[in-house]
């Protein structure tokens, strides 16, 4: 087989540049295999993050020829001929080479008010397949964070990160809001603090999702509808006036049932 040329970004927070490696191509290899061969020979200090090499853990996200991909699930023979360019995810700060600091996502995870179910009956809850299926779609998420990487709201606007949880967490909120057992209410939080309104449904997140989760159609749009209903529905508005339901913070929502 012909040789393959890899153009890999190398550097750290202070800057860097592309380094080019040319090596033999082997049958059936994915991009991560080639990176591993470079590590094992020419550049043992080439930093890349990976774990399962089976598309199940979401560790090896990078931008291949400018597009967010899992390196372990991208076959070399399915890329266009010519140089293959590999760069780190743009939305997150660089640690080294292809490794980025994804701690933004772990901070967002801490803000999500937990599931609040009723007490469990003796031999488990009764839930039906059709009721759990909606949530199951979102729980396929492997946290590769490529949807976060590609989202314009934070990709080009660092300042938005403070008040925007991003598509990965919108599906987490959707999963909880649609959970058959949940008694929490996160709608106000989504509108006021998690920036749901910033999303202008361009569906870039859905396009890059390696798990083929319908992030926009099945999570974000239904969430937007629920949030809008809660905020602007005149009947709901009147109901709130009468019941004086107060707006809860994430911390309160995490420990208290909805009033």
């Amino acid at each position: 087989m012909a040789d393959v040329t890899m153009r890999i970004w190398r550097g750290d927070a202070n800057g860097g540049n592309f380094e080019t490696f040319t090596l033999a191509q082997n049958e059936g290899e994915v991009v991560l295999d080639v990176i591993h061969r470079i590590q094992a020979t020419e550049a043992p200090d080439l930093a890349c993050r990976w774990n399962c090499k089976a598309g199940k853990c979401g560790s090896c996200s990078a931008e291949i020829n400018g597009k967010p991909r899992l390196m372990c699930m991208t076959r070399m023979d399915q890329l266009p001929e010519g140089e293959v360019t590999v760069t780190p995810m743009k939305t997150f700060p660089i640690i080294r080479d292809l490794v980025t600091d994804v701690s933004f996502n772990y901070v967002q995870a801490q803000k999500v008010p937990a599931l609040l179910p009723p007490p469990m009956p003796e031999r488990g809850y009764v839930m039906f397949q059709e009721d759990v299926e909606r949530g199951q779609e979102f729980r396929k998420c492997i946290e590769c964070f490529m949807c976060q990487d590609v989202c314009h709201v934070i990709r080009d606007h660092e300042e938005n990160k403070e008040h925007y949880s991003g598509p990965r967490f919108f599906i987490r909120y959707a999963e909880l809001e649609m959970h058959p057992l949940d008694t929490n209410d996160r709608r106000h939080l989504l509108r006021e603090e998690m920036g749901l309104g910033y999303c202008n449904i361009t569906k870039c997140c859905t396009e890059v999702c390696p798990e083929h989760i319908h992030i926009t159609d099945n999570a974000i749009i239904p969430l937007k509808e629920r949030v809008v209903d809660a905020a602007y529905d005149p009947v709901a508005w009147l109901g709130r006036k009468i019941r004086r339901k107060h707006n809860r913070t994430a911390d309160e929502a995490a420990v208290q049932p909805a009033p």
Partner: peptide, 19 residues
């Protein structure tokens, strides 16, 4: 296993709605 459901796990179900 049942405890995991209290923490949010969504297992596949039987027709009767059990795990």
């Amino acid at each position: 296993v049942w405890e995991l459901e209290q923490w949010g796990a969504l297992f596949d179900r039987t027709k009767e709605g059990k795990i």
